[in-house]
Amino acid sequence: MANSDTMAAPAALAAGPRGPKPKRRMTRGNIIVYGTLFIFALYYALPLYVMVVTSLKGMPEIRMGNIFAPPMEVTFEPWVKAWSQACTGINCDGLSRGFWNSVRILIPSLFLSVAVASVNGYALSMWKFKGSEVFFGILMIGAFIPYQVMLYPIVILLREAGLYGSLTGLVLVHVAFGMPINTLLFRNYFASIPEELFKAARVDGAGFWAIFFKIMLPMSLPIFVVSLIIQVTGIWNDFLFGASFTGPDLYPMTVQLNNIVNSVQGVKEYNVNMAATLLTGLVPLTIYFVSGKLFVRGIAAGAVKG
């Protein structure tokens, strides 16, 4: 698309500097670069803007006006309604129930999965035993298996353990499925720690747990944060497991949100729907905006295998 002019620029450079210094800002190449970036930025940013704006309007204004227009009269009623009055089926206690369910799922899942994954990564990098690499390999392959394949066997396992339909069961499922990526993360991190450190501790007589708690843990705070970020967004955004392994009273926020917005009964209240959607997205969005570079590091660690 930018063929002719962007190609011309370096050619001119190669010919050597001549004439006055060009004003960099106004070149056609730059206009194309910034123009394209601007258009894409609109595509990514507008939905969030529309969501915020819609959630602050009253229904009459929504029916009259333009979804991109800022609200003429700001109202927080849709937010209140989404939080405490929106209906799913017969229950009309709003998204707050789903929110608290999600919190109750998130906290234990977070602790357990990070604990298990860090110990796994530690064992896999510093205390390899016969077959440990095989299990790790299975774990890595498992990350690519569509969840639907394992869904029903897990239902049976949970039912046998008496945990089907409980939050504990769902927590265990999250721990299991968060294991591949987080184990990989910790394994690669621990593998990068100098071996001398480990050997010195061994010489001093420290064992598996002593080295883990006294030396490795204090050194690996950043990777714990990265792992936590991956898990918070992953678990909070889960829909499939929440819908499959819990019942209506225990649905996590995403499932309840979907039920509220896509329920067929009643008049559609778009402002309430958007407020509810924003409320659900608020936790991962906050994590994203606060954590910044660490979030990027987390997904890069997950994506580009180390």
Partner: peptide, 27 residues
């Protein structure tokens, strides 16, 4: 050393063998 590591890896081995391999084969 191996015992501690193996005990620590029990959740991983369980997940890998029972859930990932077992579940997939079962289905």
């Amino acid at each position: 050393k191996n015992m501690a590591s193996k005990i620590a890896a029990v959740p991983m081995v369980f997940t890998a063998l029972v859930i990932f391999v077992g579940g997939t084969v079962w289905t």
